[in-house]
Every structure is written in C-alpha cells, then in structure tokens.
Design a protein around this nucleic acid. Structure first.
Lengths: 223, 223, 223, 223
DNA sequence: AATGAATGAGCGTTCATTCAT
DNA sequence: TATGAATGAACGCTCATTCAT
C-alpha cells in the first residue's frame, strides 16, 4: 500500500470544479465530525448531509455509497496524521534524546485532544471488521514508528533492526494505550503530563538498556 | 459503582425459574458472540435472537430494549474478566516479582485471544459515547490495577500511593495498547511472546527505579 | 421444473397461523392488482402494502425482498391458470372437435378479461429480463398446450408427435397474439367473438389437413 | 393520428443545428438500446445518458422529461418498422401469393431478431398503461396490415372489406404471438422456419376458403 | 415463557428534474 | 450546447419495539 498516493473514492466526474472540491472537503469535514461524535454506529448519510448543509441526494452525488465515504473519510483523517508524523521526523539537528522527547511530547499531547481520543478507538474497532481499514491503520502506525525506530538506532547502536522495531512497537502501543485512560475526558486526563514524563523516562531507559538479550541487559545494568 | 453487586437489566419478573435463567444465559452468550463478530454497529436484536435460537418477541420479553441487553452483555463479559482478576490476585505465597510476572503473563496472553482482541476495542469506542459503558470500563480497569498497585508497593516501598497508581496505570495502558498491534490476527501477533518479555522486563525496571519525584529519579540516574 | 409442487417465497416462519395465511393471501391479491394496474415498472412495495392495508414493515415481514414477492405473485397467478387448464382437459366424453372448441372458447374469452389482457404482456416483457419468469411462463404454456396436443392426435392420427407439438404451438401463439389486439379495451375487442370463430374454423382445417409434409398437404388439397 | 407526420418530443429550440441533430439521433439510439436491454422498468435517464456518452444535464436539455424521451424513442423505433412495411408493400409485379409469402417471410424472420423479440413485448405492456403508446402501437399495426388486407383482396375477391380486415388482423395476431414462443432465445426459436411454413400454408388456405359464412366456406371447399 | 404478527421510523440509495455556468 | 452541482421524493429494506395469543 502506498500511503503517499492514496486514491479518493468519490464518484468519478464529480468535484472537478472549485465549487465541487470545496463541497467535497466540507463533506469530509462533516463526516469526520459525525464519526467522532457518534461513532461508526452513528454515522449515517443523513447526518453527514445535514452537518454539511446539503441534501442527501447531493451527498450521494459525491459519494455513491456510504462505504466510499467511509474510506475517503478515514483516508482523509489518517492522511492528516501522516502529514504530521512526516514533519515530526524532520526535527533534525537536535540530539536523538531531544528528538525522541519531542515526538513523544507531541504524540501524547495529541491523544488528549477530543478528536484523537474519539477517533482512534473507533478506528481500532472498525479495523477488526474491515480489512481495508485494518490495512490503513497498520500503514499509519508503520509510518509513525519509523522516526522512533531511527532514533532508537541513534541512541543505542547495539540494537539490531529487529530489536529496534520491537522497541518502537512497544513504545507506540504503550502510548496508544494511554488514549483509553488519559484521553480527553478520561479519568486520568488531568495526570496526562505526569504519565507523559513516566513514559519518556521509561522509554529512555528501555532504549539504553536494550541491545542484547535480556540476561545480558540485566548483567550490564547491575554492573 | 459497586462492581460486586451489579444489577442485571433484564425485565423484572423474568428469569425467575431455572428455565428462564438458563435462557437468559444463552441470550447473553449469543449477544456476546454477535457483539464480538459484528461489533456494536452490527449488534441487532434479530441477530441475537437468531443466534440464541429464540424469537425476537421472546428476546424482547427478557430485555425490553436493546440498551438493556447491551448493559447486561457488558456487565456479563466484564464480570468474567473481574472474576479472573480476582483470582490472579490470590496467587499469594510467591514473591512479588513472580506475582507480577504471573499477572502480566496472563494479561498479555489473554489479549491475544480472538474474543479479547475484538471485545475491548469495541468497548473503548462505545465508552466514548455511552457514559454507562465508560463507568463499567473504568471500574473494570480499576479492579484490574489493584493487584498491580499492591505488588508495586511490595516491590518498591519507597513509592507513594500516588506513584503506585500512576505506574500501575502506565503498565495497564501499555499492555492494553498491545491489543491493537499484537492481538489475535494482528500484524505483530507472532511476536507477542517477545513483546511480553520486553514489557515484563521494562516494568520490573520501571518499578525498581521509581519511588521519588521525577526530578529525584533523574538525579539518581545521572549520578 | 415441477409446476405442481411450487415452493412459496415468503419468509420462513411466517404465515404459520390462520391470520398470517389470510394476510399472505391478501398480500398476493394486492400485489396482483398493483401489477395489473401499474405494470411491473409500477409495482412497488409501498403500493402493495397500501393496497393490502398493511405497513411496509409488515409486508417485508412476509416477503423479505420485492423479488420474493414477485416470484410468489407470478407463481400465484400462473397457478390459477394452471388450475383452469387442468380442468379444461377433463371435458371428457365429448368429441375431440367439441373439446377443442370448448378450450379455444374459454381461452379466447379469458384473454378478453381485464386481468389477462394486462397480466400476460407484462409477463412476456418480464420473461425477457428474468430467467425465472421465463421458466415459469414456458412451463405454463407447455401445460396449456398439452390438451391441444392430445386433441390434435385424436382428430388427426396421421400427425406425428412433432407435428402435433408444432400445431399446438402455432394455435397457442395465434390466440395469445390476439391479446394485444382483441384484449380488454383493445380496438378489436368488440369483434373478439368473430375472431374466435375464425380461429376455431381455421384451426379445425389446419388440423384436418395436416399429417404429412407441406408438399403432400398441398397435393391432397388440390386433388 | 397521422403516422406520416409524427411530431418529435424533444425540447423546442434544440437540435436546430447539425450537431444537435446527430446528438439527438445518438440519444435515441442509446435509449433504444437501454429499453431493449433493460425494459421499460430499467429505462432511466442516467443509463441513457451514459450510453449516449453525455451528461444527464445535457440529456435533459434535449428531452425535458423522461416521458418526452420515451415518446420519441417509440416514435423512432416504430418509424423504422413503418419504413420497412412501406417497402414491403412495394413488391409489385409479383403474384399476390408471392407478395404474401414475401411479407410473412420478412415478418417472422424479423420477430426472431433480438431487438424485435425484446422490443414488442415491452411495447404491448406499456400500451396497457399509456394511451399514447397504445395509439402509436395501433397505428403501426394498422399500417402493417394494409398490405395484407390488399393482398387478401387480390387473392380472394369474394371477401368483404370487413372480412379482409378480420383476416389480416388474425394473421397479424398469429404472427405476433410467435414472438413470445419463437422469438430470439425462446424455446421454439430453432423451429421458427417450420412454424413460418405452417403459418404461410395456413394463411393461404384461410384466405382461399374465406369470402362467405363459415358454412359456405366449407361447402365450397368440399365441392 | 414464547410466538407470530404488526408498526413506523429510519436506513442507504436511485430517481427525474432543475439550475448556474 | 453542455456540464457539474443540487434537490427532494421515492425506492427497497432493516430496525427496535409492541401486542395479542
């Protein structure tokens, strides 16, 4: 899957003029809002049309089926995250530690926004029933882990590529898990900053002590 | 909320006899299966009735509304997890390290089962739109973290109660996050055991080095 | 295809009680009326439900899809004609000529009724786009031609089975063709009786002079 | 109704230039194809526009309503048949028998083409619900019977005009009825040529023996 | 305790049609 | 001429729910 060259699912021949393109954008925005507010189960063509201020006929003019709309919606939102993760990687010139801290900082802050808190659990649930969504989600995370992987390599050259990938995955999972507990409106939201410090601290240590088998790691630490 | 004294949502006056009670159980089993297979969006009274082998009229006899059924369904499933976590805690006589390892072992194995992999993301998504579900989920995790909290206290007496809670939360989040990546059928499922080792190792270290403010921790590390 | 053992297309489990059976009958009657009045293009679930005096929900309770309803509708109506043709054949004890006359008499009278005049052209049109309808129509006509075939054999033993089938087909086609011109409300409706006489006369002659090759026939006639 | 001076139903002011006229022709061709393939129930403005390679906006520019298009479509197709029947009549210089045979030959061959097999049943069905179509169809057949009527007069001067009309109608009906049974793709398609022979033979005899009451006819034949 | 029958709102979608450009 | 954009009614169908038996 080439995440850079995504193809839209709207009806061919539509959105050729500027009016149609902006309408398409407003549809995707409306769909995103409904999806976030009401979840996939509450995502209906009528709600989207209402929110976008158009008729259902016009909505179906742009998106022949609800599924087409859903795909473009997820493409659209995931595309936004991909864009941000691409930028995060470019924080060059800094030390790997600073880079890592910067990424985690952004990541955990983001998961505290209402949109992300609501969007990703829906995505995870959907991915279990829709292979296409699963593929998109996997692609997104793979991309998001790339800078982590790279930084781990800089911070601990002893790590094998496989170890780097596993560590990045573990860190990614740990942060994403925080969404459920410290996301927007969640019970631990007020302690998100402290949890972020714990995560950063922990990941630094984790990276530093890796680079061999668990036995070796423990040995090195105790020496 | 008292998780020990949950109240069922089925229609009062039903399930008074043994036949009704077993029927209720089969309904909840059917509902769970549908919920896991099709997600909340695909959970319909018809499907549940079909799966349970009864008429929709009869289903509505036991559960006046779909929402009632959903509440009992989630109560039912969460109750199962609570039961297990209660047992885990009873692994007394062993060292705290062994206890911790045992819990994480079970936890991460469980998240690799098809049921858990499918069930929890649905739950997280649902919790964002249904306060009652949110409350149940929070209660479940609070209970699940209790043994972790306790073990942390045993392993590192320097930890304040607040620190213990935060560490337990972080560990819980990190494991739950793995569901999305290393759950059943997920891309990292084959490396789940290794990720488990990383988690256990990491949590051990994390607990060991905690027990002060973040500043103190850093100071100690740099010395 | 066994026309005698047709299977209904209504939802399994419905129409088990007397109320449901009579409702099913009223639905088929309503559907028949709508089909005849408005044609296949004008046959909608809503119109049928309205005509039957029930909600569309209830209509869909009995017939899951419009196609199911259509099949049963056609089965239902064709079944009526089959029943009649079965009876026609039983006009035993009379001379073959009388029997033939009786059948043609009934046939051409029937095609002058509003229902038949409207129903069959719809059927012919539908058969061109729906193989299942085509099969039903073919089955109906095959059955309808059976007594004709038999009578031809009695009237002219010189006819080979193949000739009999062809003659019966030709007669059947000629009569059915009259539907378009002399059916109810058609320009030649008022002369239907005279056209019937022409047909009967013609078919008698046709049968009588058959029983050999065309060349032989012409030879015998000119002698 | 004057079939020679048909008035088109396209929007006044359109198709004034050569480009518009050819576009109109391509629209009618597309409409005919859709009508034949999908039937009246499947005839939609979108399909016609797609097939014609234009936008539905442009289609509605030429035909303000679907009904206008339908009328012109039927006019168009029927016009083609009228044109052919006009030519058939001009097979002068031959004997009436030869002329008759030539007409029947063409007629029954034509009804075996995919277009005619599909088109006419749709037309008959439509005529039952649309008076304008009924009028057009009646006009077409009236014209088609003219040469038959004339030839009958030549072959049997004893026939009264009324008898001639009835015989022509009967013959026309008999042939049209063959469409349903021996049209393209129908069960008897392979025996169409033999059925044609039966028809020709039969009609010759029918014409020859007519010209009086049935009794007289028989008497004359037997003498 | 259980069923078949029934409702009406809402679903996704297609339709003929209009309009500004 | 021709298009893309837009509408609103109607389509077939599913839904949660109610009710009489």
């Amino acid at each position: 899957m080439d995440l850079n060259q995504r193809q839209t699912s709207h009806r061919p021949g539509t959105a050729t003029q500027s009016k149609g393109q902006s309408r398409l954008a407003s549809i995707l925005d409306a769909a995103r809002a409904v999806f976030i507010n009401a979840g996939y189960a509450g995502l209906t063509m009528r709600k989207v049309a209402d929110r976008a201020g158009i008729s259902i006929g016009n909505l179906n003019y742009y998106y022949r089926t609800k599924d087409d709309l859903l795909r473009d919606l997820i493409d659209h939102v995931i595309g936004g995250y991909l864009h941000v993760f691409g930028k995060l990687r470019d924080a060059a010139g800094q030390s790997p530690q600073k880079q890592l801290e910067s990424i985690l900082d952004y990541w955990i802050d983001d998961l505290g926004t209402p949109e992300t808190t609501a969007f990703f659990p829906e995505l995870w649930a959907l991915a279990n029933h829709d292979p296409h969504v699963a593929e998109l989600v996997d692609g997104l995370y793979a991309r998001a882990r790339e800078p982590l992987d790279e930084i781990i390599g800089l911070m601990n050259p002893a790590c094998t590529p496989r170890e780097r990938r596993q560590l990045a995955l573990f860190m990614c999972a740990a942060m994403e898990g925080l969404t459920v507990f410290a996301g927007n409106g969640k019970p631990w939201a007020s302690q998100r900053a402290q949890l972020k410090r714990i995560a950063i601290e922990d990941f630094m240590q984790l990276i530093g002590r890796s680079g061999g088998t668990g036995a070796q790691t423990r040995a090195r630490q105790t020496v």
